[in-house]
Computed example of a mutant assay.
Amino acid sequence: MGHNHIPNPETTLNDYSVLHRAETRGHANHGWLDTHHTFSFANYHNADRMHFGVLRVLNDDRVSEGMGFGTHPHDNMEIISIPLDGDLEHKDSMGNKAIIKHGDIQVMSAGTGITHSEYNKNTNKPVKFLQIWVFPNKKGVTPRYDQITLNVADRHNRLQQILSPNPEDAGVWIHQDAWFHLGRFDKDKGTDYTIQRKGNGVYAFVIKGSFTLGNVTLNERDGLGIWNTNSINLKANSADAEILLMDVPMAL
């Protein structure tokens, strides 16, 4: 791969792919937070799962009613939150206070340093969201916050761009040559995805349902990383199947 991440041979489909089944992820249940870690995080450490290229963290979080993450710091990391269900209240040291919900994408460039908190103010249901960290391509940037609301209908049976390196493009932007897409597909529908930048790989994460990528079947919360390829084919095996593609540089 040309960098520190050496895939575990047991989960390698070929020389240029790595498979992470949902049940093999790290797991922690703190009562108020039930979380699964695709890559090493907090008390979960797996030398074979430190990152996929510049994709450092993929956490699948469930925050209980009235609970949340207290104020804590970050620096020199691009942090993306994708709410799946419920509302999450965000406050940070830049003076931002916002609610993010399903259909929204939130991004923070931690840069020289920020602190923030995230709370589920709902009293009747948990919040489910994906928290993703990407190593930036430049350090010491001025911290920034952004969030957008996307039209979920625009990802029906196709891929909707939700993130890129370009502030002028669709979705949010980050300090990295990365592109994220979300898609919701009917059974037997699918598409081809072309890698956006030579040398990038793509990490696919199934949010709901089942997909076939190439010759690999992925079920809910399974992840598959592929590199040294120009494109991938995906097809939904179930109704209302949802997938996230993260197209990222492989070299740190």
Rank of each mutant, 00 (worst) to 15 (best):
S40E: 00
L88T: 11
G70V: 03
D48R: 00
L84V: 02
S109W: 01
S81P: 05
G66S: 14
N96Q: 12
L84D: 09
N76R: 05
T71A: 15
M77D: 04
M94I: 10
R56G: 04
A28K: 11
H37L: 05
N96I: 10
P73W: 13
I80N: 01
G103P: 06
Y44H: 03
A47G: 00
D34I: 09
F39T: 08
V63S: 01
E78I: 10
A28M: 09
D87W: 00
M67F: 11
P83R: 06
S81E: 03
D34A: 14
M108E: 02
A28G: 00
D104H: 07
R56V: 08
M94S: 05
Q106L: 15
H74T: 07
L58F: 10
T112G: 08
D34N: 14
S81I: 12
A42D: 10
N76I: 06
G95L: 11
Y44V: 11
M67W: 03
A28L: 07
R62I: 11
N29R: 03
H37R: 07
K101M: 06
G86D: 04
K97D: 10
D85W: 01
F39V: 03
D75T: 09
G86F: 12
I105P: 00
P83L: 10
E65V: 04
T112S: 12
N96A: 13
E89N: 12
F39S: 01
F69E: 08
G31K: 06
M77S: 04
F69V: 09
L84K: 11
A42S: 09
S64R: 14
D61S: 07
N29Y: 02
D75W: 05
D48T: 14
N59T: 03
S40T: 12
F41G: 01
Q106A: 06
T35D: 04
S109N: 13
G95E: 13
K91M: 10
G66A: 06
R49V: 02
D75G: 07
M108H: 02
F52V: 00
H30K: 14
L55G: 15
S81G: 03
A98N: 11
A47D: 15
H90F: 11
T35V: 14
S93R: 08
E89C: 08
V63Q: 01
R62M: 14
R62P: 02
